[in-house]
Computed example of a mutant assay.
Amino acid sequence: MASGPKAPKRPRDPNQLAKSIVDLATGEAEDKKPLASARKGGLKGGASRAKALTPEQRSEIARAAASARWKKGA
């Protein structure tokens, strides 16, 4: 199993832990790892979206994001 901050939480109950290990071993459950192709597409998406928007649209999106951040903090 993976370790570190990105590792999935393991069940504390020994029976549930055993079941999760068996599920991983038999292929009934999969490790949730992001696909490299999805990551690559996600990195390109923001830049291409920003290029397609007009400066006014980008400003409006930024204004909405800033107001959402300030609203969440209060």
Rank of each mutant, 00 (worst) to 15 (best):
M1Q: 08
M1T: 07
M1P: 12
A2V: 11
A2M: 12
A2P: 15
S3W: 03
S3Y: 08
S3G: 13
A7C: 06
A7I: 01
A7N: 03
A7T: 01
P8H: 01
P8F: 05
P8G: 02
K9I: 08
R10G: 06
R12C: 10
D13Y: 00
N15F: 09
Q16W: 06
Q16K: 13
Q16A: 13
L17P: 04
L17M: 09
L17W: 00
A18D: 04
I21Q: 06
V22Q: 10
V22S: 05
D23Y: 01
D23W: 00
L24I: 01
L24C: 03
A25Q: 05
A25L: 08
T26W: 00
T26K: 04
T26G: 02
G27Q: 00
E28A: 13
E28D: 08
A29D: 03
E30M: 10
E30D: 06
E30V: 11
D31N: 10
D31M: 15
P34K: 02
P34A: 02
L35A: 13
L35V: 05
L35R: 15
A36P: 07
A36H: 07
A36M: 05
S37T: 11
S37W: 08
A38H: 09
A38F: 07
R39A: 11
K40W: 04
K40C: 02
G41A: 09
G42V: 05
L43C: 07
L43K: 12
K44G: 06
K44A: 15
G45A: 14
G45I: 09
G45N: 14
G45C: 12
G46A: 13
G46S: 12
A47F: 10
S48M: 14
S48W: 08
R49S: 12
R49V: 05
R49L: 15
R49I: 07
R49K: 13
A50G: 08
K51E: 11
K51M: 09
K51R: 12
K51D: 11
K51Y: 04
A52I: 03
L53A: 05
T54H: 00
T54S: 15
T54M: 02
P55S: 01
E56D: 12
E56M: 11
E56S: 15
Q57N: 01
R58I: 06
R58N: 08
R58K: 12
R58D: 04
S59F: 09
E60M: 07
I61Y: 14
A62Q: 10
A62V: 04
R63F: 04
A64C: 04
A64V: 10
A65P: 05
A66D: 12
A66N: 15
A66M: 14
S67T: 13
S67H: 09
A68Q: 09
A68F: 02
W70H: 14
K71Q: 14
K72Y: 06
A74S: 15
A74R: 15
